[in-house]
Design a protein around this nucleic acid. Structure first.
Lengths: 145, 145
DNA sequence: AACAAACAGGTGTATATTCACATTATAACG
DNA sequence: CGTTATAATGTGAATATACACCTGTTTGTT
């Protein structure tokens, strides 16, 4: 259990994806810092903005995120009054919407995000679209297994 | 801020990497479950096994993981007596080693991990080596930005 | 020897992630 | 109509992640 193990680890899909995820997240969060948003928070705000109003379960589907993860992730956003959670159509469901402050924050974050994305894409010399389709396929494979 | 926002999000490197990371992690953790290991735990055990004995800082470098993250991640492993943390060369440093139980656990986990990796690679029709080099490049780009 | 710089490590705080389980509300059905 | 299944959400517990900051140790310089 020596060099061989180390080599296997360095080729492990999970290990490498998590590593890349950490590195890229840190880079995006540094970029988004002036807007005071973490990476998942930006995603949530953007998704809510795109729908105007969604239930929690539907939003989790859109974000491909565990529903209970989303529930927790909404907490710091509601505390900071960036989103509001209102009673939904049912007495079961709720709907999530942006507040004015949330819209403003998102508006401030979008150029920062765009800048980070542009830096990544330029660093990859146009390979990102390819990588994206590969990643999409990888997700499909992982979810089927 | 409508369809356009949603589209941007669906092309965001960070968002997609995190999504893929979640999906693949779940798949690997389901595979490793009989050994009672989470994905990062497997990585730590494998890295420790490959070195016999390492300091915490060095191990964090190997894993490309924040040092303080590693410190926390070692906790459940030491609690379960899979690794032991001993005084190092200095009075500053410590060394991390596998216990007997840790070796046994890793030995049980390796075939499970290999199976998961094989399923992923077969699902990707040999594209994984390409994707790996792309991911490596992506990490380099993110860390330079 | 005295002091500053660099090194190894830990803690506080906050967010993110997920599973198992619990709760309440609606829908379906016999 | 009452019972059962399904849907929407929340909570407890555990791990993961990382930044800012703190402590003690060694090294290097004068």
């Amino acid at each position: 259990m020596d060099r061989k193990t180390a080599k296997k680890l360095s080729e492990c899909t999970c290990f490498n994806l998590r590593k890349a995820s950490r590195a890229v997240t840190q880079m995006y969060e540094a970029a988004l810092e002036p807007a005071g948003l973490r990476a998942p928070q930006f995603g949530i705000l953007a998704a809510v903005a795109a729908t105007k109003s969604v239930t929690i379960t539907r939003l989790a589907e859109i974000l491909v995120m565990d529903r209970t993860t989303l529930t927790r992730n909404l907490k710091p956003l509601t505390s900071r009054r960036l989103v509001k959670v209102l009673p939904g159509a049912d007495r079961r469901s709720k709907k999530v919407e942006l507040t004015k402050k949330g819209s403003e924050t998102l508006l401030r974050a979008v150029p920062l995000h765009k800048g980070a994305q542009a830096r990544i894409e330029s660093g990859l010399d146009g390979q990102w679209p390819n990588m994206l389709s590969d990643l999409t396929r990888l997700i499909r494979v992982a979810q089927k297994s």
